[in-house]
Design a protein around this nucleic acid. Structure first.
Lengths: 194, 194, 194, 194
DNA sequence: GATGAATGAGTTTTCATTCAT
DNA sequence: TATGAATGAAAACTCATTCAT
């Protein structure tokens, strides 16, 4: 769980951008070193292998997720407010860093390596468990409808979030993600409150 | 829009399976020829290049989509029945051919080539337009709630469908997709009818 | 125990020559392909890896040894004649193919890979066991002195053989190996017969 | 013929151990610096290049040899006693420092560089000349048989010594070298005295 | 049509050496 | 003196594609 050096963070971010721009197949050490302006060999001072860079990306995503869920716990908010916070924080993060948006929901990128694929799945499951817990709370406080299970509501909310981000990316960021995110929240609100 | 020869369909299906099993990075001519039991050179009798095989995969997906939407038009059903049909047809197809499930929602696979990425996006948009049209019909016939736009409802439905399939795949097909699909339909039904 | 194709034998022989000329550190795929006049990648049609080429060299050496020992068994000769045959066959082989002489007694070449180092040692032990058996026979027939054990005599004979070949090689083949081999045989003869 | 600093001797010894353990191909500046616990760059304070380290190893071997031969000259012993001394000193040295045993008879290690290969050969020739001189003395004093030339006897003795050490090393030091060395001496004694 | 060897460019990684600190 | 990051060349290996058979 060690923290990354500045150089390591540079490399991880460059890798994320590269994947976002051209796909994993273009995430080569050559392209990566070009992007950060060093010789190819230099990268190996900071990561033992290309694989470790991918591991680094996932570590970063896991940290993102943990911080997001942690943030919510400390705040005194209703369940609905918490969900709204979560969604708008996500949309803001992606708007500010579209490269992350391009990679974070693209599980296929890590499919190559069994161990990474598993890590990806875990992060996804844990992230959804976080939302499901909030919804369960909302249901027990009668703020959220109970005729649909928390699991199903989570599937609907998370699925829509992911798809909206995917559309944004595939359309080459042709619309304002935060605006559309607001609209989505309103729809979700209507749906979950009755 | 020429149709494929049997050999070509073999190759396309083998390619889809290969991607599903090991990711696009393992879609090599060598692996492909091994899978279909021919020499490497033989593949070039049927496709001019590897790129054309990817084009072929997308052509197949487009046909799938067109047929699915066409099927519905001919049938006399309510909007809600149509959506249910569409969903259950999808889940059935994926259950029968998990490889397709692994590739069809993985837009990143085709991100490498600009022209393919665009085709992917178009198929996705057209597919959703099909559902949106059904929902609009349902709304004008008062079978589907009107306080949420057809576009938003489509986002919610399609997003959940995609995410459920993704979870099924990442969990290595650990649950029964059609059963979970039924559950999802019930939730969607509750949501859209009120 | 499969036999090698002609191309594979070419590659193995080129590898032996390369090692003989410049040492294992110069046994690179680039140098090897240059020597046999193909592109680097072409070699991988015939061997899965560089490692397999080294395995191939050792297989060849093992065959050499097996044939040499087999040859002797069939012939009706006294123990002393057998030893003389063995030595002169060796010296003839090395004279005709100095590259083999440069590699066959250079166990360090294969030290890099544990599995190969073991194979090397086995070949050496088995080869000496062959000679020891002949000596034991000679002793029981009173043709060879018995006050020194067969093992020790083998050590002396094999050690001298190896060292003579090593000197020949290090002196850049500056003397006639077969002539010196004859001299060595005479010395050995005197030693073992009394 | 300058003497080495302590740091230089450290480096040379670490290099010998590294070669002994894993072969020359693993003698890299990185591995070397790891073994002596410094940064890679630090090595270049003490040696101008990796090549100079190899030169250093050979210088050490030459010193070893010179001292060994010098030692004998000063002592008042018979030729046979001198040979026994020489052998047992060698076996003792190798027992105490197996790494040296692994490198000193492995001429191939230095084969890469023409100039080193030559130095290796010279050390070997001079070392044998030393023994040959002792034998010649023994022959003129009728302590050593004269029907076999001093050169041939040297070949037999040195060859057996080398092979025994090689077997010891390849068998991963599975027997006691000094005990086996004693046995070898007894055999040699019988051989040269009659 | 099919085969499989060959090609040339590309991949990840390693290495001796240099150099700013 | 020591450190460790950077460099450029070279290592082993892969790959899409071509082509003689």
């Amino acid at each position: 769980m060690k923290d990354f050096s500045e150089k390591q963070r540079n490399i991880i971010n460059a890798a994320i951008e590269l994947i976002a721009e051209k796909g994993i197949q273009q995430l080569t050490i050559k392209n990566l070193s070009k992007k950060i302006g060093t010789a190819e060999g230099a990268i190996y001072r900071h990561f033992d292998s290309k694989f470790e860079i991918l591991v680094g990306i996932l570590k970063l995503f896991r940290q993102n997720k943990d911080e997001a869920l942690q943030n919510l716990k400390t705040k005194e908010k209703s369940s609905l407010q918490k969900i709204e916070s979560l969604l708008s924080a996500r949309f803001r993060q992606f708007s500010e860093n579209p490269a992350i948006a391009s990679v974070i929901f693209s599980e296929e990128i890590f499919q190559n390596e069994k161990s990474l694929a598993n890590e990806v799945y875990e992060i996804m499951v844990e992230s959804q468990k976080g939302i499901e817990t909030i919804i369960l709370n909302g249901q027990s406080q009668k703020q959220i409808r109970e005729d649909i299970s928390a699991e199903q509501l989570t599937l609907l909310i998370t699925g829509a979030l992911r798809l909206l981000v995917t559309q944004w990316r595939l359309s080459e960021f042709s619309f304002d993600l935060q605006t559309e995110g607001q609209k989505l929240w309103k729809s979700i609100y209507k749906i979950v409150t009755k």
